[in-house]
Design a protein around this nucleic acid. Structure first.
Length: 211
DNA sequence: ACGAGGATGCTCT
DNA sequence: GAGCATCCTCGTG
């Protein structure tokens, strides 16, 4: 049976949350009463002492006792809040805020295996013939599940968007690798994904480790 | 199969 | 003005 994760699930070490999110279910409830459900198969962790994280510069300001500014302020707020931003002017990317309030952190959800509502997700994506291509990337995922900038800053569960678990849903072993598409701290193995899943984004990383 | 390049808009990472 | 936590199309082999 499907239920929401514990309320303190996200108030934890970002790496741990990113790892634990693999196999959880991302639930998108639409206004017409229908839902799209996807199993999370790929995530990435971003922490405030991580140069690749949007909150990095703000964390330096925090250290100096200066006020926080800009887009990444939300990452210092309550865990379990949605952080959605526009990337390359085109794609919305969906993250969940982690760590206790006052400390920044987020997990980027990069890919899901759609289990329910495949027909709805297909309508949101053009020129896609295989179901594994519906949400095997962070930009594709938000389009397939109709997640956009209006979801930024909202508590999960309050916006037709939440994360649950179903004890019956299992995963293959979970691997880690470097993160995709960044130019700083490129070596940190902070991407997590289910091994042998065709629903994971296509990347060229060859060296992975089991976690 | 695979690589190059363009789209497009917000943030200042 | 530069730089993106990307995706898709079109060229070549």
């Amino acid at each position: 049976m499907l239920q929401k994760v514990e309320s303190n699930f996200f108030e934890d070490c970002t790496l741990h949350v990113a790892r634990q999110l693999i196999g959880k279910l991302l639930v998108r409830e639409l206004e017409n009463g229908k839902a799209i459900v996807g199993k999370i198969v790929e995530t990435e962790a971003y922490t405030e002492d991580d140069p690749a994280c949007h909150a990095y510069a703000n964390a330096q300001r925090k250290k100096m006792g200066q006020p926080l500014t800009g887009r990444s302020e939300i990452l210092f707020g309550d865990p379990g809040i949605s952080y959605v931003y526009l990337n390359y002017g085109i794609h919305c990317l969906f993250n969940v805020v982690t760590e206790p309030k006052g400390q920044a952190g987020a997990v980027l959800i990069r890919a899901v295996e759609i289990l329910d509502g495949v027909d709805l997700a297909s309508q949101n994506r053009t020129n896609v013939s295989k179901i594994e291509d519906l949400a095997n990337g962070p930009g594709k995922l938000t389009r397939a599940l109709q997640i956009d900038l209006s979801h930024n800053g909202l508590a999960l569960g309050k916006a037709g968007l939440w994360i649950g678990e179903d004890k019956k849903i299992g995963t293959a072993p979970i691997l880690s690798s470097p993160r995709v598409g960044i130019s700083k701290a490129v070596e940190r193995p902070w991407r997590f994904f289910e091994s042998n899943s065709p629903f994971v984004s296509k990347t060229k990383f060859a060296i992975n480790s089991i976690v």
